[in-house]
Nucleic acid binder design. Structure first.
Lengths: 344, 344
DNA sequence: CTGAAAGCGCTAACAG
DNA sequence: CTGTTAGCGCTTTCAG
């Protein structure tokens, strides 16, 4: 079903001027006599003409699309991020080509190559992982794009791309220290996968806080999940079965936190009376349900906005060789709602 | 920051053949001698060449992007829908240009015009509203696109576009009838806005069920919300203040349902002992939290998939004048979890 | 102010 | 099998 769209020469013909003139009124580039301009505008309106961005891109050798690659748009975090990105693209006549990788590295690389063909002007991406295994190939694909890349939330080892991240270490540190001030000594963590930087950092923050406060690190209290709900659920069940269970749990992301709460609820473990809890990332729904869970909160939409603004700056830069990588590290906020309390 | 990408003629030069030959191996279109083919492939690999979809689109006079316009990607419903669409585009070398309208009609029309310039091949859209006020202009913009359009979830009056919808009437009818069978007689509804078809239909289903079961419609039990959480919250508070309150509430969408539950929880109204409840659309989180709320459920991701498949069919159609509109109406399922019970 | 013409990177006849 | 060439729809010198 193809209907040949109106072209610039249709307009030129109809208004009896050259295509160059039409182009001029389209772009407001050169001075055009008011009278001819009106003629052209009239023809455009009558024929319902809209210039082709495809032809324009080819001619100008530059597109107005940017690529956005995320692991899962159904994760509210990324939903918010995309919203943030949109708010900037909307104002700058930029389009967003969206790709959802499903946390699949192969898919991700394929998408990047597709985006290259589309000649995107820039890329905002949350890589699936930063495994050493994939790193070399991955990096070269990304660099081969030859457009500015902004990393979002997850880093890529040995890369010098711009990025917007969150200080996971300090966020976790604050949470753990808060537990300690409440008098907790046996504090467990449900960590994310160590193949991602946020996963590693949150564990680091945990260990650091314990160490700085003179509490010995007990490996029995460290559990490794994969950021998905199920693992939070299962690991919490394990925790509840321990001989010498902790009195507080820190959970490294929102999905696992949900799983944890589910397990606690099912086992009739009260929060915080029987088990104190702090999680990483806000869970909007819990607030709606009046469930008071303390969390390390981060400015989600803002992360998207900032990433897009960095990208925008790059697009507007003159020199190609600007090497000073821009890495923004936002600070999370610890929001206390009572679930961290020690009621013993 | 612009780096001129490698072009087809770079490859031609390097492998000492014509651009036509390069194009041939790129597209596997004509027979090329194995030996030359290898030469070309080698050059492509060495220079890390990726053909420009921009140039290709212009030359072929056809793009491989489709537009997707939704009111809010943060609504889990649309998140799922997009996932469904992606699953089909991924397999068909199609790209998705995503636009989030924020339920704003002006924005929506602007997006559609932008998408026209991008020469999208087709459009999947959930219109913000189908007000008579905007209808004429809106319709003409959509038709002016001159590409296949598939409506998703919300209809456009007087239009003959394809679409994927849900039978809201029957879904609501079943829910209300279930209430009645439980012995409820005073049944309230928190309706959506009547400016959208789903809003209207759900109210119709409600009225129909009452009428068919010989229960008189009592306007005092009909409340009008706007699909947002807050309105569900406020209207529920109103309901609780009534002199002769209902014993059951039907809520027309997931967001308002959350608001309703919030209000009930805050007022210490037990579900279903003090108030029975059924809502439209699943709320994943409630299930996770083991909160047993009965809902009218629909196949979300599938709606996206089906929409994209209809679009795909249109794109592959030969004749331009195929007038038989395809309108798929999916059936919802009533999922009972106990919140509908009458314990009196 | 305006028109003619070259060119953006690729495809698709048309020759050979 | 392979090369030449004319566009695709637009922008952008360069003249006038």
């Amino acid at each position: 079903m193809i209907i040949a769209p109106i072209t610039i020469s249709d307009i030129a013909k109809k208004s009896k001027v050259s295509v160059a003139t039409v182009s001029r009124v389209l772009n407001d580039s050169d001075k055009v006599k008011e009278q001819t301009k009106e003629k052209v505008l009239k023809a455009i309106k009558e024929l319902n003409y809209a210039p082709s961005d495809i032809a324009r891109s080819l001619s100008r050798n530059i597109t107005n699309t940017i690529g956005v690659v995320v692991p899962d748009i159904n994760n509210p975090f990324f939903g918010q991020v995309i919203k943030g990105i949109s708010s900037v693209t909307d104002k700058n006549d930029l389009y967003m080509l969206l790709c959802d990788t499903d946390e699949n590295e192969q898919k991700e690389m394929k998408f990047i190559e597709m985006l290259k063909r589309q000649r995107i002007r820039g890329l905002i991406i949350t890589p699936t992982a930063d495994n050493d295994k994939f790193n070399a190939k991955y990096l070269s694909i990304l660099e081969n794009l030859n457009v500015p890349v902004v990393l979002l939330d997850r880093d890529v080892k040995y890369s010098k791309f711009d990025g917007v991240f969150l200080d996971s270490i300090s966020g976790t540190y604050d949470a753990i220290e808060c537990f300690i001030k409440e008098g907790h000594r046996k504090i467990a963590i449900i960590s994310g996968p160590l193949s991602s930087k946020p996963g590693r950092d949150r564990l680091r923050g945990y260990k650091k806080a314990l160490t700085m406060n003179g509490i010995e690190i007990d490996d029995r209290y460290i559990f490794y999940g994969d950021f998905r709900l199920e693992s939070g659920y299962e690991l919490t069940q394990e925790i509840l079965k321990m001989e010498d269970p902790p009195t507080a749990i820190f959970v490294s992301n929102n999905m696992m936190n949900l799983g944890c709460i589910k397990a606690l609820t099912e086992a009739n473990v009260r929060i915080p009376e029987d088990m104190a809890l702090i999680g990483f990332d806000e869970i909007e729904l819990l607030n709606i349900m009046n469930m008071d869970i303390s969390v390390v909160s981060r400015p989600t939409a803002q992360m998207g906005e900032v990433a897009m603004e960095i990208l925008l700056d790059r697009l507007n830069e003159q020199k190609v060789d600007n090497q000073d990588t821009k890495r923004i590290i936002l600070l999370p906020t610890l929001i206390l709602r009572g679930s961290e309390k020690n009621t013993k």
